[in-house]
Design a protein around this nucleic acid. Structure first.
Lengths: 125, 125
DNA sequence: TTAGTATTTAACCGATTAGTTAAGTAACTC
DNA sequence: GAGTTACTTAACTAATCGGTTAAATACTAA
């Protein structure tokens, strides 16, 4: 099944080992072995993490002799941030509360005395 | 096992259904049934999604009669954005490439004729 | 060619995930 | 209290995840 890019990005970022790897890559491309060093897990485990990072487009890999250097490609993070930014005002102001308050006001507006249920429609499928 | 908040947030955001639910909640708190309506899945499935959103701190739930309204709590997104922002320059400029270039320069610095392997050390454990 | 280094692939495992259906709970309506 | 509405819990399933060890691959060095 096809999985959208944003889901791919967020789920790649959901693992602390992978985030640490990305952090390390901000100081330049490096080998798998060196990326593995700080982590208390086997090389194949790291290799798998790198594969999901590559799959999500957050790194690219090349070849230089025996070593396969990994390089950061932060572009997909842009879309993640763009998505999140739409919520900024919600965590900065208490706008979520405000939206609820306004909705409450409208819901309790005249000509609907008490127990309205505003077109519930379609009980699931 | 304890799982860090950032991983919790990113993995909550990694599902398109959950992102759609959050998007819906920007226009005010609402019931589980109404949140479920646009999605082609059972109510228990939605209930589970809401549980992971609650667990990650992205929503809160209350009780108003029979209905359990969900409310957006965008705060955890702030930390997600803060984490991502450290990479902004990497997707805006081509800074990732630059870092690699600088590292390359240093690696090829004099007094290391040709095939250095810059203290490989510690072959994993 | 033989040995060593870097990394991936294969096969397996236990835990988690995302969904299902069926049954349970809690409040409201009559 | 009987039925309806709104939701959750339980039990199950198939797929995915994050790790393992062992073996394979690919290059380098002697």
């Amino acid at each position: 099944m096809v999985i959208d890019q944003l889901s791919l990005t967020f789920s790649a970022l959901a693992d602390p080992t992978r985030r640490a790897i990305l952090a390390r890559l901000t100081s330049g491309q490096t080998s798998v072995t060196e990326l593995a060093a700080p982590h208390d897990m086997s090389l194949p485990a790291i290799s798998k993490h790198l594969r999901v990072l590559e799959h999500s487009g957050l790194i690219t890999r090349s070849r230089a002799g025996q070593v396969r250097p990994c390089q950061l490609k932060a572009e997909p993070m842009k879309d993640a941030v763009d998505w999140l930014e739409r919520y900024r005002r919600h965590w900065e102001e208490r706008l979520d509360r405000l939206a609820d308050y306004l909705q409450e006001l409208q819901a309790n507006a005249p000509r609907q005395k008490g127990k309205r249920r505003g077109r519930a429609g379609k009980t699931s499928r």
